[in-house]
């Protein structure tokens, strides 16, 4: 498909990924298909927002078994993947053994000081953690993002309390992010592919904090 911004590979409505094919991947024209139902980043791309991933340094919080990470790593230069659950971390390490640009950490994203010594300043911060304090976790990790870097935050609404109003929750998160120096915030509904999730995108600028 022509006319789209970004450098992602599109063919006949399929989002493709140039990396080596892993077991379980659907293949189209010899390339891995990055399916929106399996990966929230792909869902964003299908809904019109394509993050600039080419040759970037990415910090991925909540990497899980590394499905999305493997695709992001196909495009990005290096992915720092943080995960804090036993089972998926095994797969993540297996993946990191195969791909030279995935650097796994078995750490809690609530305590960034435990992995920041190894992580460079990154261009993109992607977070997909279903926890009550998911916004706070993102804010704690913002300082690893370069000035003008991109924050992609996936919120699972159910994790933040089942009784609360959805719009109110999103507004709360947005105002928290705004205070932390994230501007140009955009909210993207990805409910069509991932029920109960919402994507929040913003540009981080550390300057805003100083001005206050």
């Amino acid at each position: 498909m022509q006319g789209r911004k970004g450098n992602l590979i599109w063919q006949d409505g399929n989002l493709l990924s140039p990396g080596r094919i892993l077991p379980g991947d659907r293949v189209y024209n010899g390339k891995r298909v990055w399916e929106p139902k399996r990966s929230k980043v792909a869902a964003l791309c299908h809904l019109g927002f394509e993050p600039p991933l080419d040759n970037t340094r990415v910090l991925y919080l909540g990497a899980a078994a590394g499905t999305t990470v493997s695709f992001v790593a196909d495009y990005a230069e290096v992915v720092y993947a943080i995960e804090f659950a036993y089972r998926p971390v095994r797969n993540l390490v297996r993946l990191a053994n195969q791909r030279s640009n995935i650097i796994p950490f078995f750490q809690d994203a609530r305590y960034p000081e435990r992995y920041t010594p190894f992580v460079e300043v990154v261009d993109v911060l992607i977070q997909d953690i279903a926890q009550r304090d998911q916004a706070e976790i993102a804010i704690k990790n913002l300082f690893m993002l370069k000035n003008g870097g991109l924050l992609i935050l996936f919120l699972k609404m159910l994790s933040m309390g089942v009784q609360k109003e959805k719009n109110e929750l999103i507004e709360n998160v947005c105002s928290l992010l705004l205070d932390a120096g994230v501007g140009n915030i955009e909210v993207i509904e990805i409910g069509t592919y991932h029920t109960g999730h919402v994507g929040i995108i913003g540009i981080y600028s550390s300057k805003k904090n100083y001005e206050k």
């Binding site: 971390v89 993540l92 390490v93 990191a96 053994n97 650097i103 950490f105 078995f106 750490q107 190894f118």
Partner: peptide, 16 residues
């Protein structure tokens, strides 16, 4: 990157 990856995998295995 490869040195860092080796170290991080070593750390993950140790922490597990």
């Amino acid at each position: 990157l490869s040195l860092l990856r080796d170290l991080s995998i070593g750390l993950v295995v140790r922490e597990l």
